[in-house]
Design a protein around this nucleic acid. Structure first.
Lengths: 244, 244
DNA sequence: GGATTAGGTAACAGGCTGTAACAGAAAGGC
DNA sequence: GCCTTTCTGTTACAGCCTGTTACCTAATCC
């Protein structure tokens, strides 16, 4: 993939400058925009791989804009907002946003989400769609998105719980990319109901352990779902996706 | 789907403001209107996905307006009224309203009904109409709406109770869309007599279980009528609709 | 090596779901 | 009207799922 081109939309000039600079420092092409007209101009002018769209745009509403853009195009959109209230979050997803980040955000989290959305978008417009139609191959294993079936290299069907399946989907969408526990929790909630992820607890650790017992030959020495000490976890296998 | 555009019609300014604000907070585009002329203006001006129509409009009658609109267009209509007397309710349905809500209503119930009606409307003008004329194919099964007959992939006719049939219709109208128990109950009541859905009880769970024993090859491991833990149920099959 | 910190996981508890059993309601049949 | 059958909601119980806690081991730092 060529360098991803991001369109950053915010009506606060300082915020806009800060975000574009940060994204450029991290290897992206970041273009600033301040209004829906700006966005449309950029979309007409050239390739845009992802839009980072502020929810509060003066008297305009980012959610509405997102809805209108999505009705016309398949460009991935991440909504950014100072309001982290759940209903807002849900409104964003209903409109077809690919992800949702609350301000103030952790810069690393922003990068991780941008990368995750770009990776997903490389192949198909929406994760939900992909789940319905795709088959994932990884390390001899097969995951049928349509049937939620997991087949071992030997051809045995393995039963995963809903939460384990969701984790596997997150990993399949982000192979070779280290994910923090927070990122995983956030991604799981995207797939699910959008609750604020819990601050404490070892839920992700335990979930990872449970998935390992089911898909790792030797869970004590995991080959695919590796620990990145001090960081989180990595899905260290190549993933191939086919239709059907 | 883009953000649903709702037209809220009420001659009480305070009520109108309250409802539009609440709907906007929940991610909808809510447009206010106070008269039949207002409604026609909006309908001519742009897309309207659903009309929330107060029955008492000064000297006008929402039921009459509903009848006239429906004679001309297929826009879904939910009637809202302070009078919950049964004859009023029936008058509403005879006129072609898609649902009927009594004031004062539970806000969450309003949302559930709005969503249910929108979901149904996504595919077809009216469920009643579709039932009369359509044949549904899903996972090898066939449901003849006209005759209320269900045929298994092997061609055997399967007898469903009234309630089971109603549930199947709701599922056929919403494939791949997770439905909460409340949404299912509301949709069933629309199909039925419009009773307030019971707050407690596991009626939907049991109903789902009963339908599973009849249309799932292995009810213990359902492939079509899937559980969405913490949410509700999803009809996870593609549905094809043909005339005849 | 010893101390400290991070990660793995067994055990537990609470919540959610499936379902058998029961009872009241509705619909026929006589 | 009375009985039978069918339908459907409620209840209770069992089992699964999942987050928390606590303890242990492994890695890291000094």
């Amino acid at each position: 993939m060529a360098i991803p081109r991001l369109l950053v939309v915010d009506d606060d000039a300082e915020m806009l400058s800060m975000m574009t600079q940060f994204l450029r420092q991290n290897g992206f092409i970041a273009l600033p925009a301040a209004s829906e007209d700006d966005i449309r101009g950029h979309l007409d002018a050239g390739r845009i791989d992802l839009i980072l769209l502020d929810v509060m745009l003066g008297d305009e509403n980012g959610v509405d804009i997102c809805g209108r853009l999505r009705a016309e195009q398949d460009v991935p959109i991440i909504l950014v907002s100072a309001l982290s209230a759940d209903h807002q979050r849900m409104a964003g997803y209903e409109v077809g946003a690919d992800d949702y980040i609350a301000k103030p955000f952790n810069p690393q989290l922003l990068l991780a989400r941008v990368r995750a959305v770009l990776l997903r978008a490389q192949r198909t417009p929406s994760l939900a769609y992909r789940r319905r139609v795709s088959v994932f191959h990884f390390g001899g294993w097969v995951y049928h998105g349509k049937r939620d079936e997991v087949l071992s290299p030997e051809g045995f069907q393995v039963a995963l719980s809903q939460r384990e399946t969701a984790l596997l989907q997150v990993l399949l969408a982000n192979p070779h990319i280290p994910l923090t526990r927070e990122e995983i929790a956030a991604a799981l909630d995207v797939t699910g109901d959008g609750n604020q992820p819990e601050a404490t607890g070892r839920a992700i650790d335990v979930l990872v352990g449970r998935l390992r017992t089911k898909i790792e030959k030797n869970p004590k020495d995991p080959q695919m779902l590796r620990t990145e000490r001090g960081t989180g976890y990595v899905f260290a296998v190549d993933v191939a996706v086919t239709d059907s």
